[in-house]
């Protein structure tokens, strides 16, 4: 137990060292705005991937409407800063909360649905959210809404760390195990006394909260948000991160978020090529490596293995 705790703090410290180095580079002008922006994008995409990972990868609830929660976070936070003159941090939080409430609303009725039916229902919910924004003049309808630039490397990174810590801690507890048991065998989970409804909704709510936060960051990183940014293709962009990483692997989701964000930055000028590559990757992964890059394993498992082997070979009581 003690060891686990210290690994946790070690990771946190390393993360902040990384943050500091990047921040220094930005301040010194070594990283031009293009790279900074890419880094921010990576943070946002990791938040999205990890939050969806909780719903699909951990709890096994196949949601393909994550962009709906992203949209809510984006719009609500933009309303907060642009219309109500609230501070950015509050706006982010508000976006997360409203998205989480929507997660509750979507989660509860969706519980009666399984597998592909649930998928279609989440897609429907996301479309409804988008159409609602499309029809509200207050937020600019189809033309969208102007948003000031407020997202920085620091805010994105803090949100990212918060997301990962919360979701990792949730996963590594009785609550996370309950969610995984639902994914593995819902009927058995139920028979073991797990309130499956409660945990499915909890996964939706937590996942949506962070999608909402990502939405706030996303909105304040552009100069404009439009309902068209949050259609099914956006949900698909998030879905592919989770699938490629390996359903059930958080580090897989993180790695593929980094990888694909970089790839799409290079393909920015060629959106069709990008979509062809994305969809081809998705199909090929499903056909030839359905477990994705990482399966359900985590990076730390490899690390653990390596340590274990070394300990076994050497002095058992040394380390």
């Amino acid at each position: 137990m003690l060891k686990k705790v210290s690994t946790f703090w070690l990771a946190i410290v390393l993360a902040f060292v990384f943050y500091g180095v990047v921040q220094l580079l930005i301040l010194n002008g070594f990283l031009n705005p293009f790279y900074t922006n890419t880094l921010i994008f990576i943070c946002i995409n990791i938040i999205l991937a990890v939050s969806l990972h909780l719903v699909i990868g951990i709890t096994g609830q196949f949601s393909i409407g994550h962009a709906g929660f992203l949209a809510l976070g984006a719009y609500i936070s933009a309303i907060m800063t642009m219309k109500l003159d609230m501070p950015f941090s509050f706006a982010l939080f508000a976006g997360g909360i409203v998205a989480a409430l929507a997660g509750l609303v979507v989660g509860i009725p969706s519980l009666r649905l399984r597998g592909d039916y649930l998928a279609i229902a989440t897609l429907g919910f996301a479309e409804i959210i988008r159409i609602i924004f499309l029809n509200i003049d207050y937020v600019g309808g189809a033309a969208g809404m102007q948003v000031t630039h407020a997202t920085t490397w620091t805010t994105s990174f803090l949100c990212l760390i918060l997301t990962i810590v919360v979701i990792v801690n949730f996963t590594n507890s009785r609550h996370g195990r309950a969610c995984i048991s639902i994914r593995e065998n819902e009927i058995a989970a139920d028979a073991m006394g797990i309130n499956t409804t409660y945990y499915k909704v909890a996964a939706f709510v937590i996942g949506s909260f962070f999608a909402g936060i990502a939405g706030g960051l996303y909105a304040h990183n552009f100069y404009i948000i439009q309902p068209a940014n949050f259609g099914f293709l956006k949900s698909f962009d998030i879905l592919i991160l989770v699938v490629l990483g390996g359903l059930g692997s958080l580090s897989g989701a993180v790695i593929s978020a980094i990888l694909l964000t970089v790839v799409s930055t290079f393909l920015q000028e060629l959106p069709e090529t990008r979509m062809i590559i994305y969809s081809l990757v998705l199909v090929l992964v499903m056909l030839y490596r359905p477990q994705g890059l990482m399966g359900t394993r985590e990076i730390t498992d490899y690390f653990g293995n390596w340590k274990w082997k070394r300990v076994k070979g050497g002095n058992q009581y040394g380390g």
């Binding site: 195990r177 995984i180 994914r183 593995e184 058995a188 989970a189 073991m192 006394g193 797990i194 359900t296």
Partner: peptide, 20 residues
Amino acid sequence: RLFNEQSVLDNVKVAYHSLA
């Protein structure tokens, strides 16, 4: 109907869930 991808220990822990 086991929780296949979970460890043997975690399978039992899940059953303990509601006692914690």
